[in-house]
Design a protein around this nucleic acid. Structure first.
Lengths: 253, 253
DNA sequence: AAATCAATTTATGTATACAGATTTAACCAC
DNA sequence: GTGGTTAAATCTGTATACATAAATTGATTT
């Protein structure tokens, strides 16, 4: 047995992934400002990887939607308007609606539906305690993400799953993007309860093979996230809980 | 003025783009078989670019959906089932439906609607001649692509436009993916006429700000492409007109 | 004869060096 | 003082060299 490795380069993950994670963190935390060119050299210094993996990471982040290619070369951080974000959420809702419809129309066995119902039960448990603690909010985010992921899988459509994953990659478009931001707001509890009702309805619709109903409720479910977005932007008290806030371009720009 | 450049490297387009185009062509033409690993070295030889741009192109083609990453490293050509393809088309239809709804709900000026109506008129002109010539089919493909592109733009939603572009990148999911394949079939003319009716209706719906109608008709419009797909696969007489046929995995595999 | 192990070959991931292009800054002229 | 031009510095795109890991093939043993 050798001693612990001297240099902690962490060979388990590739340099490319490491650079991608580091850069994404820098973007979402606002250290890299929207509109400004990302210097590869600087990225090399901050991420520790060399230029090749950094370049790779930049390409991936562009495809992910966080970066924009500059015609003359290189990349810059993309800026998003409030409209862009709400459209991205509506987009995700539309895709999840399609997934729910596929699941309903194509049929899902009771066994396959079980993980979804487990999520439902766990969230029910969370919402039983009033008022909802910050920890409970955090658990909700995890369970909600799981619910959406499982539901997406139930469509059994690889192309659709792929697109939903891409649409949810933008942090502010993901299912729980703005839940935490309003954990201290009085409306929060109501919104969570309504969201959970949507979860309940979509399961029921899938069980009864009601495609249109399943689709409609998932679309409406996403609009709850749009409401969360609006709430969060109007009540700027807990914006520190939000990543990716730095990407939103305000009207003053 | 210098004489014509000795070496024809074509510096106007980057090596990365050149490699991407060359590889995509190889994939769609079937020279690279689904499932088999793509050798970077071999790609370097066939594309003429060096390893770095080839690697870049491979990453982009993966994001595009034509390639799949191999866990142990490298990429392989993805294989698609008939279900995958019809789902991709339905997916595109859903997104275009959303774009049409956005356009209708948010309002489009008469001037902005003009390019769309020009396309409509041009296609009307094409369909007037019976039977429809192969050239007319070809023109239809161009005009149809333009119609869909313009309609997408009318949503005025950059995130949505981006996603539609991604969804249409798969050649068999693009709006005119299977039109040419059945240019010799008797049903072809009818399908084109029906498709044109959809075009007419969606314009009318947008003009009258009927969001639900605009969305529904674009979804149905995409299902026409699914029908084209089925027709093309059943009547395998003109499959040579189809790119990307090599990617479809048959039941015998 | 078949299976397993080892060795060799090849492939990918990474780093770095180099060239062309772009941008910025400084200086000069008007 | 301002604007334009030129030069320098930096940055991206590309090529290639190197190291590590994986896969395949051959040989040996059971």
């Amino acid at each position: 047995m050798k001693a612990a490795p001297e240099r902690e380069v962490d060979r388990s993950v590739s340099q490319t992934v490491k650079a991608q994670l580091a850069l994404r963190d820098q973007i979402l935390s606002g250290r890299l400002r929207p509109g400004e060119r990302i210097s590869e050299l600087q990225a090399v210094e901050t991420t520790g990887a060399s230029r090749t993996p950094v370049r790779m990471a930049l390409v991936r982040l562009e495809e992910e939607g966080l970066l924009e290619a500059i015609p003359s070369g290189g990349f810059m951080v993309k800026a998003f308007s409030e409209r862009d974000i709400s459209d991205s959420i509506e987009l995700r809702g539309t895709l999840e609606g399609l997934a729910a419809r596929f699941a309903a129309e194509r049929g899902v066995s009771a066994r396959e539906l079980e993980p979804l119902k487990e999520c439902l039960g766990a969230i029910d448990e969370l919402l039983r305690q009033v008022p909802i603690s910050v920890d409970a909010f955090s658990s909700y985010v995890t369970l909600n993400a799981r619910f959406h992921a499982v539901l997406t899988e139930l469509s059994r459509s690889p192309p659709l799953i792929r697109q939903i994953d891409r649409a949810s990659a933008l942090p502010f478009a993901s299912p729980s993007g703005f839940v935490m931001a309003q954990s201290a707001l009085p409306e929060a509890q109501q919104i969570l309860i309504i969201g959970q009702e949507h979860h309940r309805v979509v399961i029921d619709a899938i069980e009864n093979r009601e495609g249109a109903r399943a689709e409609a409720v998932m679309r409406e479910h996403a609009r709850l996230a749009v409401r969360n977005l609006r709430l969060a932007l109007r009540n700027r008290t807990h914006l520190d809980l939000l990543p990716a806030l730095a990407l939103i371009k305000t009207a003053t720009d």
